[in-house]
Design a protein around this nucleic acid. Structure first.
Lengths: 367, 367
DNA sequence: CTGAAAGCGCTTACAG
DNA sequence: CTGAAAGCGCTTACAG
């Protein structure tokens, strides 16, 4: 029914091998121009479409890549996935998407299924700092690029955000507004994002001459609104109440909003809140959330870029790309209630938006 | 290097054909239990993984399905995609995701790429009411299920929302609050969602004894915030100003918020606004948006279900599934400013949430 | 420049 | 119940 390369060859009166060479961009120069024309004409007349399955089977290249994320419902991921898919598809690749829910067993199953389908490469947004599954993939020689989260082991190419720089901007912003007692609702320490932001918090506080108090740091077990509520309530229930909360991400910040509401505290009058990620609609919350914007889409395209390079030549050197975040100041941060020092200006509570310049550009340490 | 079925056969001292039968669930009963055991043991010892590519090539079943959507960044789609992926993956299928941006040329390219990869089926969230591309797929016999949007041609299985019922609840709610002059910012009429909601608006208005005025209906060319702003401004600039706006979806409603802000009107005091979809965080806007919640996730799982049936037996009858929406009343709707009749109660502007019961259950007209 | 042939790793009628 | 063989539709050394 559906024409094969034999049909094309017969019509063009050549051998199937010749038809194959004529039909493939890369090998076309091996055949006489006139013959190539004839073959392509025959293919067009028959409406011939090559069977990728047969080709992939023969060449063991599928032009497909796995994209494994925790959960597409987390607003962090759609733009990353979009960037990935877009870049991959322009290179002729197709993206196989799967969600793990951060469940290791499920992740194992998913990876197995993808590997069995002989994908050419893998983009993982699911890395834990210690991640035996990923290390195993590396050992097998699978082309892997990590995005957003990274593993401690530097043996993988990755594209992530300069969390340290992001938190640094946050602390400087808050210190500038006169805040001295700044709390941190930290993300899971098993993930590079949670860990790096926490480390960044501690060092930035010190750099600003402030003390990161143990009692003012609470660790969330997940990046969720529920955990934000729990931890936000915890840090705000201390005798010497903080005047600002730096949340590990926007979800945790959202939980802090609820915590403050329940404690009868108002934001930013009593307490300022800062998030991380700038998910969609964060500018429309009340109050609009001050947060660190990360270049989601670029995370996706750059990760795709690295993977494409790697899939093309498997001796491509590792690349670790750090992208610069931006502080976006909105209504959820204001002057410290009892300002120790004068404050430049009180921020309006409206949805105004001021993007501060990024501290430095993307850097590529081991290019 | 990596073991093939021949290696397993050799180790178990059987013919490769027998090994194949033993290794496949479906054909295992054809071989003696003892032999099967021996083969499976050999496979386990060698760490044998079947090469899906070879299998797919031979059987021309890939256990993969294309999932084609306009844009994963639109918050409507993540839960749908999640539902799809989840249901498909439990059945051993993998989802190939692609975004079209509603660009027909791009969609054509994407479908071609997916078809060339011999996917077993296709879920499309990109349907236009008249859609030659989809009709063509149907003619070729490709297993297709439409989700969210549908085509006029009833020759396709689909899972969508009872838009009519949703709009009906909205109008009843507004009429109950005393609104008489109700505007509609309609979605694109080339899409079933935009069209059906518009038709529902007109008929529900009549059913409530209200007049759907031409001047109070504006058609957006896209489901976007920008178009919501444009159309919202238009309907609010009429001499006899409406007291409520029914937006074709939440994006349009968001644009209406901005329109009201710019016109110096407040919501819900001057004008009530209602959306459609209940995207994430709509409960955290100010004011929280009254909207029609659709069962996004179920749209995904049910579409996957239909596709799985269809892929299993290609003589499966068509199914058109309509899922029931729910009205979610929040702060953006309140009593009409100059209420003609007494209003049951004034709604608080806080983030309270009341889910009204759905009018009817899912129905399956042509099961 | 082109033909003839082998083979990628499976599955599956067909015998026996 | 199992073996022997063909073949899915391509690509690609190998000759000539």
């Amino acid at each position: 029914m559906v024409p094969t390369i034999r049909d094309v060859a017969r019509r063009a009166e050549v051998h199937p091998g010749t038809a194959s060479r004529a039909l493939n961009e890369a090998t076309r120069s091996l055949v006489k121009a006139e013959t190539a024309e004839r073959v392509m004409a025959a293919a067009a007349e028959l409406g011939y479409k090559p069977n990728y399955l047969a080709r992939s089977f023969k060449t063991s290249r599928t032009f497909s890549a796995g994209v494994v994320i925790p959960d597409i419902n987390n607003p962090l991921f759609p733009p990353i996935v979009r960037g990935l898919e877009e870049r991959l598809s322009t290179a002729g690749y197709v993206a196989l998407l799967a969600n793990t829910d951060n469940d290791i067993e499920r992740e194992r199953l998913i990876l197995e299924g993808l590997l069995a389908r002989r994908i050419d490469g893998l983009v993982l947004a699911t890395a834990r700092r210690r991640d035996p599954l990923i290390v195993e993939l590396g050992r097998q020689g699978t082309a892997v690029v990590l995005v957003n989260r990274v593993v401690e082991d530097r043996a993988f190419s990755s594209v992530s955000v300069d969390d340290q720089a992001g938190v640094n901007m946050v602390i400087e912003h808050l210190a500038g507004l006169g805040h001295r007692r700044i709390a941190h609702v930290a993300g899971p320490q098993s993930l590079s994002t949670g860990y790096r932001r926490y480390r960044g918090f501690v060092s930035s506080m010190r750099d600003s001459g402030l003390k990161p108090e143990k009692s003012q740091i609470s660790f969330a077990s997940r990046f969720s609104v529920a955990e934000g509520l729990r931890c936000g309530t915890e840090v705000m229930s201390q005798p010497h109440r903080p005047t600002a909360i730096v949340a590990g991400n926007d979800m945790l910040a959202l939980g802090c909003y609820t915590a403050l509401e329940r404690l009868g505290l108002s934001c930013p009058e009593d307490v300022s809140v800062v998030g991380f990620n700038d998910m969609p609609f964060m500018d429309r919350l009340s109050p609009p959330l001050t947060t660190v914007r990360i270049p989601h889409y670029d995370l996706g395209t750059q990760a795709a870029e690295l993977l494409l390079e790697r899939m093309a030549h498997d001796d491509t050197p590792l690349k670790i790309v750090l992208l610069a975040p931006q502080l976006v100041v909105r209504g959820s941060t204001g002057a410290a209630p009892v300002a120790a020092k004068p404050v430049s200006r009180r921020r309006a509570a409206g949805p105004s938006l001021r993007v501060l310049p990024a501290p430095r550009l993307a850097r590529q340490p081991r290019s």
